[in-house]
């Protein structure tokens, strides 16, 4: 997702911004619920992916951030990762298309893909609505099994506060 950072400013009507804002607040509510329910630990990459880690740190859920989804614009197609595939941190595991752009989705940590979000095949726009929702009907991309290396990779990622500061800074450029 790196390329959607900072200056990918797409001119879009004010209406969309309003909708995006409304949906963002909805998804924050949804996230708060799922986070407390699963006692998940959330981390972000500089390339705008997120991962929710289960309490036992053995499994996780991966997606792209609301910030990234907003920068990308209307997502019209999602190429989902391959189930069963083992990947390293930074590997391209799938792609999304929006406004003539094919953008890679990269794995935030080393892991094995155990499940993909088939809802996105039919409704790719779910990512624009609830990008960071890891529940049923949310915009998550894949569920993963965390490897030993994956646990180490986590240390280099940002917590939600650091990521918020990171994107705020990016927005000022």
């Amino acid at each position: 997702m790196a390329s959607i950072t900072r200056c990918l400013r797409v001119a879009r009507p004010a209406v969309f911004t309003a909708v995006a804002r409304a949906s963002a607040s909805r998804s924050v509510a949804a996230r708060a619920f799922s986070v407390s329910a699963a006692n998940a630990l959330r981390k972000y990459t500089k390339e705008h992916e997120w991962i929710d880690l289960s309490a036992d740190k053995k499994t996780g859920v991966v997606g792209i951030s609301e910030y990234a989804a907003k920068q990308l614009g209307d997502i019209v197609y999602v190429e989902l990762p391959e189930e069963g595939k083992e990947v390293s941190a930074g590997d391209a595991i799938g792609a999304v298309e929006s406004v003539k752009s094919a953008a890679d989705i990269n794995s935030p940590i080393s892991c094995k893909i155990t499940q993909v979000n088939l809802v996105l095949e039919e409704k790719p726009g779910t990512i624009n609505q609830v990008a960071e929702d890891d529940s049923h009907g949310g915009g998550w991309i894949a569920k993963v099994q965390v490897t030993e290396q994956g646990l180490k990779d986590l240390e280099g990622l940002m917590d939600p506060d650091a990521y918020a500061a990171f994107t705020a800074e990016a927005g000022e450029h």
Binding site: A2, S3, V99, S101, A102
Partner: peptide
């Protein structure tokens, strides 16, 4: 006409 490809480090 235009098209784009965005990777982790390049546009």
């Amino acid at each position: 006409g235009s098209a784009y490809k965005l990777t982790r480090t390049r546009a």
